[in-house]
Simulated assay, not measured.
Amino acid sequence: MEYRMFGESGCSVSCTGLGLAALGRPGYINLGHHEDLGNEYDPSKMEAQTHAMLSLARAQGINYFDAAQSYGKAETFLSTWLMAHPREEVVVGSKWGYYYTADWSVQADKHEVKEHTLERLNLQWPESEQRLGTALKIYQIHSATLESGVLEKRAVLQRLEEIREMGYLIGLSLSGVQQSVVLEKALAVKVGEKPLFGSVQATYNCLEQSAGETLQKAFDRGLGVIIKEGLANGRLTSRNTGAYLKTLTDMAQSYQVTEDAVALAYVLSKPFVSVVLSGAAVPAHLISNVRGSEIKLSQQDIRVLDGLKVKPDHYWAERASLAWN
């Protein structure tokens, strides 16, 4: 497993990380998520599954784990695993600004609600800090958007600066067609004379490449760059039937890996990427995802995969249509 410096943080992170969005709650939008969980939604069984996945990830060389308050019990499951493992060996990032509302149901009307307020930050920050302790290094605004106005809320930004002064890296995650616009705005945010953000998490994959130039700009300015949805919520795996899948399948056969490994290797080929997240919920998927960090795509294959990109509005409309399962 290759390790990379995470921006100017001084942290060394595995180029593949494990995200807990699909492990901390019964419902998620990944294709085939219900198959991964085997319809076993008892919290104790899901906690055991999460612990097994975290341990497997460490055995594979992964040291970056990504959680959020809205991922059901993800922080809690991670905290109980950390009790039995050396916290100094891992880097944890979590997020505030959404809260979980599904009540452990797959069929909930709403699974999470966004609230980018000072009150929500002051409620969620102490919970994350207490659960994750010294392993927590990166604290992120969850899905910052222009609409929420969070980048203009001076009281929120000042509170985040106070958290940064305690030794934490402040970041933000992005989503939607305006990822680049929001990131440009975030890069200009200062509290006092210092830029606030040292980390960004964004969607980037073979299909959605629109944020690439801005992510490179952020990387060049010293931000650590985390890539989420490198597999487009399962659309870049054999679970999908998209027309582009044949390209991935043919390429995977030539490298003797699976489609997901090629898709993640493509993300890792980009110079601005610090870490790409695996969203695996079962061991076989995590192991195949890790293979993406072990192969090096040819420049010709990278150009072919560059050619799979679609218009951002098409990509995000299709993502919005994915069913919680």
Rank of each mutant, 00 (worst) to 15 (best):
C11L: 13
L20M: 12
A21E: 07
G24H: 04
R25F: 05
H34T: 10
H34V: 09
G38W: 08
N39T: 07
E40K: 14
D42M: 08
P43E: 00
H51K: 11
H51G: 00
H51C: 05
S55E: 03
L56D: 00
I62S: 07
F65E: 04
A68W: 05
A74M: 04
A74L: 03
F77Q: 04
L78W: 00
W81A: 03
M83P: 03
V90L: 02
V92T: 06
S94R: 07
K95D: 01
Y98T: 09
A108G: 08
H111T: 09
E115V: 12
T117V: 08
E119L: 13
R120L: 10
W125N: 03
P126H: 11
S128N: 05
K137N: 11
K137Q: 06
I138L: 05
I141K: 02
H142T: 10
E147P: 02
G149L: 14
E152C: 05
V156I: 14
L157F: 13
L157G: 02
R159A: 10
L160G: 06
E162A: 15
M166W: 06
L169G: 10
L172G: 00
V177G: 09
Q179M: 14
K185N: 12
K185S: 15
A186H: 09
L187T: 05
A188G: 12
F197Q: 01
G198Y: 03
Q201N: 09
C206P: 00
C206S: 05
E208G: 12
S210H: 06
A211G: 04
G212E: 15
L215A: 09
K217D: 03
F219G: 03
F219C: 14
D220T: 06
R221D: 03
G224E: 13
I226R: 11
I227P: 04
E229P: 03
T241S: 15
G242P: 07
Y244P: 08
L248S: 02
L248T: 00
D250S: 14
D250N: 11
M251Q: 12
A252S: 11
T258G: 12
A263G: 08
A265Q: 01
V267R: 05
S269T: 10
K270C: 07
F272H: 06
V276M: 04
L277K: 00
S278I: 08
G279D: 00
A280C: 11
L286I: 07
N289K: 07
V290P: 04
R291E: 13
R291D: 12
S293Q: 11
E294D: 02
S298V: 07
D301L: 09
D301T: 11
V304L: 14
V304A: 13
V304K: 15
K309F: 07
P312L: 11
Y315D: 08
A317Q: 12
A323V: 11
A323F: 09
